[in-house]
């Protein structure tokens, strides 16, 4: 990894003759970050993998138990359900959010590029997931929420947004879209700025309308950025926890028990850290595979702009 020389404050700042070597000073400069990196990122990653092969209840030292946790995982219907629920959530969340963010970003670019508009769109991102969940818990309350009051007022049936198995995940997906769509739109907006205006001018001279230009110019030229946005948002989406913990606690009957919430429950509710770690490794594997597939499928590395 890194050469470990004795660390003493280097007092010399010699700059001139000979090939420079700042090794001592550099070590001093990266030391805090390196310690943080090693202790809170590299070590926990290795340890997480190790713990997945153990039986560990936090009170007594971990006992190696081979593949037991993985065998249990494969046979655990709750795990598979959690994985399914998480995937369902990611598809709804990312699908809805990406389309909406793309439309918002294009409109921000074509209508007005004023900063205040981007500021307003970004506002929900400034509050925590907990705050977002609390507000929508209230707005979407079955009896008293303004959302359902409006639905009832226009003559429809009230919707049990967070207390019905079929509605729970779509509702949670919507709450997180509310919080994150502005941020995603701004990322896409930044990507749009990289498309030269001359391309649009040429399109306009050729008589193309807005819709045509969106299809033939914006989308193809935006592809590399869009795929990066997708990779980032999908990885984030898989880690959903906060909203579920506040709004539904996994219910009703496991219908919103996403993987991360199940892992938390197994670790802190039942103190089965070994099994929880094994499921974390599974989630990590899913993320690696999904990212890799996305990268390949969207050809994120190449641009059409060249």
């Amino acid at each position: 990894m890194v050469t470990t020389t004795s660390i003493r404050p280097a007092k010399t700042g010699r700059a001139r003759n000979g090939p420079r070597d700042d090794t001592r000073l550099a070590l001093l400069f990266i030391l805090p970050a390196l310690v943080g990196f090693a202790v809170f990122l590299v070590w926990p990653t290795l340890r997480g993998i190790y713990l997945s092969f153990t039986k560990f209840n936090l009170l007594t030292p971990p006992e190696f138990n081979g593949l037991d946790n993985y065998v249990r995982m494969v046979q655990d219907p709750v795990f598979w359900n959690a994985l399914k629920v998480t995937l369902y959530y990611v598809i709804l969340n990312i699908g809805f959010q990406t389309v909406l963010a793309l439309v918002i970003a294009v409109m921000m670019q074509r209508l007005t590029q004023r900063t205040w508009l981007r500021g307003i769109v970004l506002t929900p991102f400034l509050v925590s997931n907990v705050v977002a969940a609390m507000v929508f818990l209230w707005i979407l309350d079955y009896q008293l929420g303004i959302g359902n009051t409006i639905i009832a007022a226009i003559g429809l049936d009230r919707i049990p947004f967070l207390s019905d198995s079929a509605w729970a995940i779509p509702t949670i997906a919507f709450i997180n879209v509310w919080r994150h769509v502005g941020y995603t739109a701004l990322l896409i907006f930044a990507g749009l700025q990289t498309i030269p205006e001359t391309v649009y001018e040429a399109g306009r001279i050729d008589g193309a309308g807005e819709v045509r230009m969106f299809r033939s110019i914006t989308v193809p030229l935006l592809r590399p950025i869009l795929s990066l946005v997708l990779i980032i948002t999908v990885v984030g989406s898989f880690q959903v926890f906060d909203t579920v913990a506040i709004a539904t606690r996994g219910g009703p009957v496991d219908s919103s028990r996403v993987l991360q919430y199940y892992i938390y429950d197994v670790a802190f509710g039942r103190f089965q850290f070994g099994y929880a770690s094994a499921m974390s490794v599974a989630l990590l594997a899913v993320l690696v595979i999904v990212t890799f597939l996305q990268y390949r499928l969207t050809r994120a590395e190449s641009s059409d702009l060249a």
């Binding site: 926990p44 990653t45 997480g48 713990l51 898989f238 926890f241 991360q260 770690s277 989630l283 990590l284």
Partner: peptide, 10 residues
């Protein structure tokens, strides 16, 4: 490494 993976060991 997704942040979430390091939470338990941390």
């Amino acid at each position: 490494i997704p942040a979430i993976f390091t939470l338990l060991p941390n």
